[in-house]
Amino acid sequence: MQKEGKTYRKGRNKMGMWYWWTLLGMALVTYIPRAFPLTFLEGKELPPVVSGVLRNIPYAVLGALIFPAILYVQQDNLLFGLIGAAVAFSLAFLFSNVMIVVLGTIGVLAVYSLIF
């Protein structure tokens, strides 16, 4: 216990005030990509080609966010991700309700990991 407490202190002291400066920097560089386009582009009419591409982005993003990451939710168990993906897609085709898809997939995988 005592020893752990000491390393903990030491770990903190190493960064000390720097932790908060790092946090400030992280906060800024995270906020800028979020806020800049939304505020800068307000009221601006973009060329049709550009807005056409921008309208495509949500669906392309979803494709990239899902695959292949969904297969690796449990890094050492590809089957787990495969089952999860299969269940999620099946539920989404059947119900088109996000809540059902989320809770249903969690439910099936919970049962699966209890059994195996």
Partner: peptide
Amino acid sequence: AAMSIALYAMFVGLLVP
């Protein structure tokens, strides 16, 4: 383990419809 799928299941649930 089961809940680690949640965000991906949500993405699927948003995309498929």
